[in-house]
Amino acid sequence: MNLTISGHHLEVTPALREYVLTKLDRVTRHFDQVVDVSVLLTVEKLKEKERRQKAEVNLHVKGKDIFCETSHEDLYAAIDELMDKLDRQVVKHKDRLQDHHHQSPKRLNGDLGEPLS
Protein backbone atom coordinates (compact mmCIF):
# COMPACT_ATOMS: atom_id res chain seq x y z
CA MET A 1 0.00 0.00 0.00
CA ASN A 2 1.39 3.37 -1.06
CA LEU A 3 0.60 6.14 1.41
CA THR A 4 1.03 9.87 0.79
CA ILE A 5 0.17 12.43 3.47
CA SER A 6 0.62 16.03 2.44
CA GLY A 7 -0.37 19.41 3.81
CA HIS A 8 -1.51 22.60 2.13
CA HIS A 9 -0.68 25.75 4.15
CA LEU A 10 0.21 23.32 6.92
CA GLU A 11 3.23 21.36 8.04
CA VAL A 12 2.43 17.69 8.57
CA THR A 13 3.86 16.95 12.01
CA PRO A 14 4.78 13.43 13.15
CA ALA A 15 1.79 13.54 15.54
CA LEU A 16 -0.60 14.30 12.65
CA ARG A 17 0.98 11.59 10.52
CA GLU A 18 0.65 9.03 13.33
CA TYR A 19 -2.98 10.05 13.95
CA VAL A 20 -3.88 9.57 10.28
CA LEU A 21 -2.10 6.20 10.22
CA THR A 22 -3.97 4.90 13.28
CA LYS A 23 -7.27 5.99 11.76
CA LEU A 24 -6.43 4.35 8.42
CA ASP A 25 -5.81 1.04 10.20
CA ARG A 26 -9.56 0.69 10.70
CA VAL A 27 -10.19 1.06 6.96
CA THR A 28 -7.48 -1.41 5.98
CA ARG A 29 -8.77 -3.86 8.60
CA HIS A 30 -12.16 -3.95 6.83
CA PHE A 31 -10.75 -4.18 3.31
CA ASP A 32 -7.20 -5.35 2.64
CA GLN A 33 -7.05 -4.75 -1.14
CA VAL A 34 -6.06 -1.08 -0.81
CA VAL A 35 -3.52 -0.12 -3.47
CA ASP A 36 -2.90 3.58 -2.95
CA VAL A 37 -3.91 6.20 -0.35
CA SER A 38 -3.42 9.93 -0.74
CA VAL A 39 -4.37 12.21 2.19
CA LEU A 40 -4.41 16.01 1.88
CA LEU A 41 -4.73 18.19 4.97
CA THR A 42 -5.54 21.86 4.34
CA VAL A 43 -5.94 24.99 6.43
CA GLU A 44 -8.15 27.63 4.83
CA LYS A 45 -7.97 31.08 6.36
CA LEU A 46 -11.18 32.80 5.35
CA LYS A 47 -11.21 35.53 7.99
CA GLU A 48 -9.34 36.08 11.21
CA LYS A 49 -12.18 34.57 13.27
CA GLU A 50 -13.15 31.82 10.82
CA ARG A 51 -10.60 29.13 10.20
CA ARG A 52 -11.64 25.98 8.44
CA GLN A 53 -9.57 22.81 8.56
CA LYS A 54 -10.17 20.50 5.62
CA ALA A 55 -9.15 16.87 5.21
CA GLU A 56 -9.57 14.85 2.04
CA VAL A 57 -8.53 11.39 0.97
CA ASN A 58 -8.28 9.66 -2.38
CA LEU A 59 -8.25 5.88 -1.95
CA HIS A 60 -7.51 3.54 -4.83
CA VAL A 61 -8.78 0.00 -4.26
CA LYS A 62 -8.92 -2.84 -6.71
CA GLY A 63 -11.52 -1.80 -9.26
CA LYS A 64 -12.51 1.62 -7.89
CA ASP A 65 -11.32 5.00 -6.69
CA ILE A 66 -12.97 6.38 -3.54
CA PHE A 67 -12.84 10.08 -2.65
CA CYS A 68 -13.98 11.74 0.60
CA GLU A 69 -13.58 15.21 2.05
CA THR A 70 -14.67 16.95 5.24
CA SER A 71 -14.27 20.35 6.85
CA HIS A 72 -14.26 21.26 10.52
CA GLU A 73 -12.86 23.88 12.86
CA ASP A 74 -10.54 21.28 14.41
CA LEU A 75 -8.24 19.28 12.14
CA TYR A 76 -8.40 16.15 14.31
CA ALA A 77 -12.22 16.25 14.22
CA ALA A 78 -12.07 16.65 10.44
CA ILE A 79 -9.81 13.56 10.21
CA ASP A 80 -12.25 11.60 12.42
CA GLU A 81 -15.23 12.52 10.22
CA LEU A 82 -13.20 11.75 7.10
CA MET A 83 -12.26 8.27 8.26
CA ASP A 84 -15.88 7.55 9.26
CA LYS A 85 -17.07 8.47 5.77
CA LEU A 86 -14.27 6.53 4.13
CA ASP A 87 -14.96 3.46 6.27
CA ARG A 88 -18.63 3.48 5.28
CA GLN A 89 -17.77 3.77 1.59
CA VAL A 90 -15.17 0.98 1.76
CA VAL A 91 -17.57 -1.37 3.56
CA LYS A 92 -20.25 -0.56 0.97
CA HIS A 93 -17.80 -1.30 -1.85
CA LYS A 94 -16.78 -4.57 -0.21
CA ASP A 95 -20.44 -5.61 0.14
CA ARG A 96 -21.02 -4.87 -3.54
CA LEU A 97 -18.07 -7.05 -4.50
CA GLN A 98 -19.29 -9.96 -2.39
CA ASP A 99 -22.98 -9.70 -3.35
CA HIS A 100 -22.77 -11.51 -6.69
CA HIS A 101 -24.50 -14.70 -5.57
CA HIS A 102 -28.05 -13.47 -5.09
CA GLN A 103 -30.98 -15.20 -6.73
CA SER A 104 -32.96 -13.65 -9.56
CA PRO A 105 -36.46 -12.28 -8.82
CA LYS A 106 -38.03 -15.13 -10.86
CA ARG A 107 -36.45 -17.72 -8.56
CA LEU A 108 -37.58 -15.97 -5.40
CA ASN A 109 -41.29 -16.23 -6.37
CA GLY A 110 -41.01 -19.90 -7.15
CA ASP A 111 -41.79 -19.32 -10.81
CA LEU A 112 -39.36 -21.09 -13.08
CA GLY A 113 -39.52 -19.22 -16.35
CA GLU A 114 -43.16 -18.12 -16.20
CA PRO A 115 -43.63 -14.40 -16.80
CA LEU A 116 -44.82 -12.34 -13.84
CA SER A 117 -48.33 -10.95 -14.29
Rank of each mutant, 00 (worst) to 15 (best):
N2L: 05
L3Q: 15
I5P: 03
I5A: 09
I5Q: 06
I5G: 09
I5V: 14
G7V: 02
H8E: 15
H8D: 14
L10H: 07
L10T: 07
E11P: 00
E11M: 03
A15F: 00
A15I: 00
L16V: 00
E18Q: 07
Y19W: 10
Y19D: 04
V20N: 05
V20I: 12
V20W: 02
K23C: 10
K23S: 07
D25R: 06
R26T: 06
T28W: 05
F31S: 02
F31H: 04
F31K: 01
D32L: 10
D32Q: 13
Q33Y: 10
V35R: 09
V35Q: 09
D36I: 07
D36S: 14
V37D: 02
V37H: 00
V37Q: 06
S38P: 01
V39I: 13
L40H: 11
L40R: 11
L40V: 13
L41G: 04
L41P: 01
T42G: 01
V43I: 09
V43D: 02
E44D: 11
E44Q: 11
K45A: 11
L46S: 13
L46Y: 14
K47Y: 04
K47V: 08
E48S: 12
K49V: 10
K49L: 04
K49F: 04
K49C: 05
E50P: 01
R51E: 06
R51L: 02
Q53R: 10
Q53T: 10
K54T: 02
A55L: 10
L59D: 08
L59I: 13
H60F: 03
H60Q: 08
K64V: 09
K64T: 12
K64E: 03
D65V: 13
C68P: 04
C68A: 11
C68G: 05
E69C: 06
E69Y: 11
T70C: 09
S71T: 15
H72Q: 05
E73H: 11
E73T: 14
E73Q: 14
D74R: 09
L75N: 08
L75S: 09
L75G: 04
A77Y: 06
A78M: 00
D80L: 00
E81F: 07
E81N: 08
E81Y: 07
E81L: 09
L82H: 02
D84P: 00
K85C: 03
K85L: 08
L86G: 01
L86Q: 00
D87G: 02
D87Q: 05
R88E: 03
Q89H: 02
V90Q: 04
V90P: 03
V90R: 04
K92N: 05
H93Q: 15
K94W: 00
R96H: 08
R96F: 09
R96V: 03
H100W: 11
H100A: 12
H101P: 01
H102D: 10
Q103Y: 13
S104P: 15
S104E: 11
P105M: 05
K106H: 14
L108H: 07
N109K: 14
G110P: 03
G110K: 07
D111G: 13
D111P: 04
D111F: 12
D111A: 15
P115K: 01
P115I: 01
L116M: 08
S117P: 06
